Structure formats: structure tokens, C-alpha cells
Computed example of a mutant assay.
Amino acid sequence: MLRAGTFPVWATVCLLAAGCDRLGFRSRAGGDGPAQKQPESIEVSASAAIAQTVPERLRATGSIAAVRSANVAPEVNGRIVETYVEPGDMVQSGTPLVRIQSDDAEQRLAQEQAAYNEAVANERFAMAEAERYRNLLKTGDVSRSEYERFKAQAEAAGAAVATARAAVAIAQRELRNAVVRSPFAGYVAARSVTAGEFVSTTTPVAAIVQLQPVKAQIQIPAFEAARLRQGLSLTLGTPSFPGEQFRGTITALNPNVNPESRAIVVESELPNPQFRLRPGMFVEAQILLDEQRRVVFVPEEAVVYDPDLDASRVFVVEDGAARVRVVEVDRRPGAARPGFVEVTSGLVGGEMVIRSNLDELYDGARVRRSHL
């Protein structure tokens, strides 16, 4: 009979053995009884765990935002007679968005053009008269005062032409302004008017958002602000494109601290030639700081994860045998060496880590290294 509060030693040993067996800490050789045949060695590929000094990384989250956006309003009052775009359409700089009724502008342009043509004709006649009187002055057939009078008329006619030309330019601009155009390339986020509505110069007709480039706005705890500066490199990942990394640098640091979140906003401008990144997308950022740290890297295929025990392990070669090392790894995106996993504890660097035939291995298994 067992005394209350005690646990049999044999039961403890069994539980420990079972746990070790789950992690690969088991040996298939040895034991009591007659000598057993030594198992054949398993051929494996192995490579050295790499110890390296890399920049310290600061992780944070944020979202994509537009570098430039505009609520486009007309420059003339009038009634909308036609719309050319729908929300989601891609537009170039100068693409027509809507057209405003332009009957008055067309009539005014015709009037100003007629006035200009008349002014040009008057100028030609006045200049011809001034030239004729200049020649008569040379022969003494007219007085200088008469010549000066016609010369002044020619100059006034020239000024009238300049005034008429300016009036034509204004009328042409008003007619052009009847068509509201996109101020830059981007996409139509909203169109707020329809045909038949009356609009003024304060009425937005469409919202345009530029998508090339875009910027990431990242929330950083205020106490980390001293570690940041413009020009630091960063990588971004987003659930919208799993496994992909977008690279940039810090282009702006907002000095204001949000009183609720106690965070500052860091911005990074990113190229977006295919318009894949859209405003509002969630991003995870890793900022490479000026500080350095020492880490160990092993090939991704060398790490075995046991979800039941929530532990990762690797096999290392020691004296011709495979030995288990329980490790902690950082699998988050942005590793300094693509194809490798960062080991944060369990290895010091230089160990020969096995990366093949892992399903055949156990702690103490005899191994021989392949030369491939």
C-alpha cells in the first residue's frame, strides 16, 4: 500500500522515459540481457550551425496608406451632363472624370474669338495707316503731329489685340474646365456625383488615390523612439500576400505621441508598380536597428516541431551519433538568411546539424555523414 502524498519511483521513471521518447530521446541499443547486434549507421547530410552578428530587429504593426489623395472639385459652377469613371477605375493624370454643361462657356468663347479677330483686323489697318503717314512725313506732305496721331492709334490697336487674346485664353480655360480631370495617376476611390446634379467649385466630384508609391504607417511604442532614425531599413509582411516581403527605409518619424496608445507613427515609402499594396492593408514590420546581436542560424529543414509538446528540436552529430537538442526558434518573416531559421536558444554555433533522414533518427542513433 502506498502512503498518501507519495508517488512510486518506478512510475516517475516511466513518465520521464515516455517524455524523452516523444522528443527523440530514446536509444534503440543497449539494455539488460545478452549482447545485441550493433545497428547499422544512418547516412545523413549535415551542415554547421552558423553564428552571426546581425542588426537588432524591432517588430511592430501598422497599415498601408496613400502617399497622395485628392477630393477633386470643379473650377466652374454648372450641371453635370456626363460621368466617365466608376469607383475602382484606374486613371492617369488628365483622365476625364465628369463633364459640366458648357453652353455658356462655348458661347463666351465664340464671342471672345470674334472680338479677337476684329481687333487683329483693326491692328493691321492701323499699322498700315501709321506706315503710310510715316512715308508722307518724309516727303513733307503731312505734319509730324498727324503722323504721331496715327502711330498712337496703331499702338492702341496692338494693345487691344493683346487684351482680346487674353480674353480668348480665359474663355478657352473655362471651356476646358467644364471637363474635370484627374490631377494624377491612381484609382477612383469614390465618385460623389451623378449626371443632372448641379455642382459648385466647392463640390467634390470624385476622390482619387495614388497607388505608386504608397507608404506604410507603423505604430511604435514611444519608449522605443530613441532607437529610431530616418534611413533605417525595414521589411514588411502582410496577410494579403503570405510569405512575401516588401522592403523599404524609414522616411519620416512623427514626433507626436498618441495620448491613448502612447505610440508614435513611423512612415516608410514603398514602390508599388503593380498596385498590389492598397490603403488600409494590415502590415507587420521589422525595423533593422543600429544595434547588433549574435544569433545562430540552421537550415529550415533541420528543425522538427512537435505540436503536442509545443517544442522544436534538431539533431546534431557528436562522436558519430545523433544527439537531440531542444531549441527555441524564431520563424517570423524577415530572417537575415533566407532558407534558414534563427535559433534563439539551444545552440551556440558550430554544431553539425543534421538536415536529412530526420524521420529515421533517434537520440544516440549511429550516423555517417554523406559527402553530397
Rank of each mutant, 00 (worst) to 15 (best):
A166Y: 06
Y187D: 02
A35H: 08
Y305S: 12
P8S: 11
V295A: 00
D310A: 13
A207P: 00
Q212W: 06
A154M: 05
L358V: 03
R26C: 14
E129D: 15
T83P: 01
A18M: 14
A160I: 07
G350E: 05
V343D: 01
T12G: 13
V329H: 00
V329T: 11
D104I: 07
T344Q: 09
A49E: 00
I100L: 05
A73L: 10
L361T: 05
R332C: 08
N258K: 15
I220M: 03
G349M: 08
V199D: 03
Q245E: 09
E301H: 03
Y362V: 03
N117G: 07
A171W: 02
S240W: 03
Q38R: 12
A66M: 08
A226V: 10
L289V: 08
L15S: 13
G94E: 01
E260R: 15
I218T: 05
L372N: 13
L23A: 14
E291V: 05
A46L: 06
I264Y: 05
A157T: 04
S63D: 05
S261R: 13
E318F: 05
A207R: 15
L358W: 01
T61V: 15
G364M: 07
V314G: 04
I64K: 01
S345K: 14
A157E: 00
R323K: 10
R276S: 09
N117I: 01
